[in-house]
Write a protein that binds this DNA or RNA. Structure first.
Lengths: 358, 358
DNA sequence: ATGAAAGCGCTAACAT
DNA sequence: ATGTTAGCGCTTTCAT
């Protein structure tokens, strides 16, 4: 294979290798001759052999808990693209939210000599152990002693609740996520913090205004049913994920409640679907593209031996859509609210631009 | 590494290798001794080196048009699992529905010495070319001269339309998919075939009862708007994918039409979401698990040199849920009553249980 | 049943 | 600037 190219071009093995690798020490005419031979023979260097010899695969391993989760799916897509821009490929492992499966994948990827590991740890994972000295960057879920890139979940929750308060809502309930996930903890913390700061009375913060659910539709559906059965009933719901929020929309519909006339709902993530459910979902967008670029960049810098800060936060931004409207309790008095046209949708800019300290 | 194991166990390199590979010609006591050394040293064989030498990676490449598409996401998950059961891993490539990107991935995977290639060809791909002699199995979308595993899309469409006819519908419109995709062609064919067989008058089959759209929410939303603007208005919609169907649900909602009271909708694929939108979507389920297992099995058999039939069909099954109900025209003879309630949704059980011939 | 030795296809250190 | 040579870490003949 490579020998044939060398023979055809009348040069040695080494020179062909140098051409393949863009080594600048080859004379232009030779380079051309070799390239011609490569093209003519349709030669493609064997990446396995290259990896073995050069000890680098130009490949990152990516392990996520569930491809089927739209947020992770988008993350995969985005990471794949960012990696490509840096000349890397990605091997995906689907951990099925199981630390055991996750570990198996991580080992497999390490054995495959990946140049680095991107991991969204599954629920229950305490630490990532890698035999060989592969650099690891966590995404979206932090773990002690690891580099991590994640969205400002607390700030995002704050944006969401502030938005609802601005619409006149006071009885704002929360569907919180699993508390063994930092994401969920942070979002809940942002909710509580904003509620108490806003002067909402202490009673509103009783645990009865929060229900816990997993990050999926159905368990959030149940949580929403429980919350909406409360008396007095909440006028707004802050869900910790879009999937939860969509479950909540479904619960409201089943109870005969109109959104946003009877109830406002805000989600988190801005998955593609959130703009397509009925009513369209107001939500907090995670900047997946930034998340990806920073993660890849971090991994590359770590490989180079540069030191990178262990925690990197990516700002979120509100996407205001139809599922949130003025509080029914507040007839006119409170702040001007929008007119709810039938079927028309306006997308506002983020109302709190630059309102957060860095 | 492996030398250390050999030394510690007091055997040769070859023997350690034999133990790793489960070669039965090693004496039990030696095997035990070697295994102990392996465990003690935490030795993990380098997969790159193994691949290079043995010319097999125990890895399949998988190239799909878009991870973000819930159907493909589920396929990825399912294939990954099936592959695992056979001792294989999967490297994913996201082609972004572009033949160019797809080709790049396929080459990359071939250069990586994958043992086989699973491809869902992107729109526009005419054929899959692989330099090395890697076996290719297509999934879900056929291409001439290639092995393919796919659902019985035509049969599924037939099931769907038959279901609607059984509910009394006659003005059944169709949102067809892109006609450069066999899936879409087949589903549309199943629709037309069933319509004409059922004695629906020829006029109903005029092209005006079909609108074309991509397999996504928004373009299907537009198509549904166009169809529902027709006079007379269709009483039922057969969409070529769940995403399309959900777009149609949204269009119906925006037009003030209740589903299924004013309009029945049936989708295709049974993505997880279809059971969670409001109203729940009646749909045709693709047996993704079977699809995956057969695809992996085919690839393995092809590798062994066994001959496998070029086309393998997997049966579909109806999932009857709330979005399809009896035709409003039929209920009370003619009098078209119907109350356009404000945003209320009632969730009925399937009203036609057992009322249909097999 | 086990050991010795020859590579898999390439890259990189060393010559020239 | 180019050729030569020695491996990367394993598997797999071929001996024994």
């Amino acid at each position: 294979m490579i020998r044939e190219v060398a023979r055809l071009a009348g040069v040695s093995l080494g020179t062909v290798s140098r051409v393949i690798n863009g080594n600048p020490t080859v004379a232009p005419d030779i380079r051309q001759r070799v390239q011609a031979a490569i093209d003519k023979l349709g030669f493609r260097p064997n990446r396995v052999a290259r990896s073995l010899r050069s000890q680098q695969s130009h490949t990152f391993g990516l392990v996520i808990p569930d491809v089927t989760n739209p947020f992770f799916a988008e993350l995969v897509k985005s990471l794949d693209q960012s990696a490509g821009e840096f000349g890397y490929n990605i091997i995906l492992g689907n951990a099925e939210e199981s630390p055991t499966v996750e570990k198996r994948y991580i080992q497999m990827l390490a054995d495959r000599q990946v140049d680095g590991l991107l991991v969204v740890p599954s629920v229950g994972t305490r630490t990532i152990k890698v035999d060989r000295d592969v650099k690891v960057v966590l995404i979206d879920r932090a773990l002690p002693k690891h580099h991590v890139v994640l969205s400002d979940h607390r700030g995002g929750a704050k944006q969401a609740v502030t938005h609802l308060i601005g619409l006149g809502h006071r009885r704002i309930a929360c569907i919180a996520g699993p508390q063994n996930l930092t994401v969920a903890v942070e979002r809940w913390a942002g909710y509580r913090e904003t509620m108490s700061r806003s002067g909402a009375s202490a009673t509103l913060l009783k645990s009865s205004w929060t229900e816990f659910a997993n990050f999926d539709y159905s368990s959030a559906y149940d949580a929403a049913r429980r919350l909406l059965a409360r008396n007095p009933r909440p006028t707004a719901l802050f869900a910790s994920s879009d999937q939860q929020a969509i479950g909540a929309l479904r619960a409201a519909a089943d109870l005969g409640l109109s959104v946003p006339q009877d109830l406002s709902v805000v989600g988190f993530d801005d998955i593609p679907l959130s703009d397509l459910v009925s009513p369209r979902l107001t939500t907090v967008r995670q900047a997946v593209t930034d998340l990806s670029r920073v993660a890849i960049d971090t991994l590359i810098r770590l490989r180079k031996g540069e030191s990178v800060s262990a925690l990197q936060r990516i700002a979120t931004e509100m996407r205001i859509r139809d599922s949130s409207g003025p509080c029914p309790d507040v007839g006119q008095p409170r702040a001007p609210r929008r007119r709810l046209g039938g079927g028309q949708h306006r997308v506002n800019d983020s109302p709190s631009k630059g309102a957060r300290p860095k």
